[in-house]
Amino acid sequence: MARKLATIFVALLPILLAVASADSDPLLDFCVPDPGTNPIDLNRLASYPCKNPANLTASDFVFSGIKSPAQIPASTEFVGVAVNPVQFPGLHTLGMSFVRADFGPGGVNPPHYHPRATETALVVAGRIYSGFVDSSGRVFAKVLEEGEVMVFPRGMVHFQMNVGDSLATIFGSFNSENPGAVRIPATVFGSDIKVGLLEKAFGLSAKELERLKKKLGPK
């Protein structure tokens, strides 16, 4: 019996870990935070009281900020607009957030990952080369057409590029209200990691690293 229980536990362990690592389950139907006169701080959401439900309207649960594409910088041909409880307070405690990403021709969303969420990405316009890399280094990638969805497992490095000749748009959703984003190029070459370490790790010269740091470091 003990061996049988151990086998069942091992089989259930990935599920138990996934449940334990998700956003906390809500204790109320909803909780639109009331930060008073200050802007909402994403890292202090739990400290805000909920607005009185009697004073809420349908408008508290509607967001209109991503109906149109944002201005796409010519330097990157890519722009992403995140929507979490800071922009849309009605999301608070619901365990989700989302993003709109627009790509000019050739635009790239550089390799990055979300430490606290799995993402699904729906292509609503254009053609996007999209994929992720698993922990063994295997790449799962293909060109997505309009209407197709790809999933990026939590913590996996993923990327996207517009391979069409017109504007492309993706709507991404996350199973966390604060998924986080770690952008690989900026994190590695735009941070204060010692140049000597980066030279040995990537086989780059100090001059090459300095150029990358200027390009990818804080503006």
Rank of each mutant, 00 (worst) to 15 (best):
V149Y: 01
I170V: 11
F202A: 13
F189W: 11
S191A: 11
P110W: 07
V108Y: 05
K214H: 13
G131N: 10
F98A: 08
T118Y: 03
G107D: 05
A186S: 15
N175K: 08
K194D: 10
V124W: 00
M96E: 04
I170L: 14
E148Q: 11
S136Q: 07
P153K: 04
R116Y: 10
H112V: 02
K215F: 04
P179D: 08
L167F: 03
A206Q: 12
R211D: 12
V157W: 13
L144G: 13
L198H: 11
I193K: 14
A117I: 08
A141N: 08
D165G: 15
E119H: 10
F159K: 10
G137R: 07
K200S: 06
V163D: 11
P105Y: 03
F189G: 03
T120P: 01
G147N: 03
S130E: 04
H114I: 01
D102Y: 02
L197T: 03
I170C: 05
G95L: 01
L212F: 13
V157E: 10
N178C: 01
F202V: 07
A101R: 04
S173N: 12
P115W: 02
P153V: 12
M96H: 01
L212A: 09
K214A: 06
I128D: 02
I184K: 00
E146A: 13
S97K: 01
V124Y: 00
M156K: 15
E119G: 09
N175I: 07
T169V: 09
G104Q: 06
I193A: 15
G147R: 05
V188G: 01
H112Q: 10
E208M: 07
G106D: 02
A121S: 15
I170N: 13
S205L: 12
N109S: 12
M161F: 05
M96I: 09
S205F: 08
S136V: 02
A206W: 10
R211T: 06
S136L: 05
V188L: 15
R211Y: 10
N109F: 05
V123F: 01
F152N: 11
K200N: 05
M150I: 11
G203V: 01
A125P: 00
G203I: 01
M96Y: 04
I170W: 03
A201V: 14
A168I: 01
Q160G: 14
G131C: 02
V188P: 00
I128M: 07
S166C: 07
A141V: 01
V163Q: 12
D102G: 12
G95F: 04
K214N: 13
G137P: 11
M150G: 07
I193R: 14
A201M: 03
D102E: 12
S205A: 11
L209M: 09
G180N: 07
G106I: 05
G147V: 08
A121K: 02
R100I: 00
I128H: 03
T120W: 08
A141Q: 08
F152G: 14
R100N: 06
A117S: 15
R138H: 11
Y113E: 03
R211L: 13
G190R: 07
V108D: 02
H112P: 00
N175T: 10
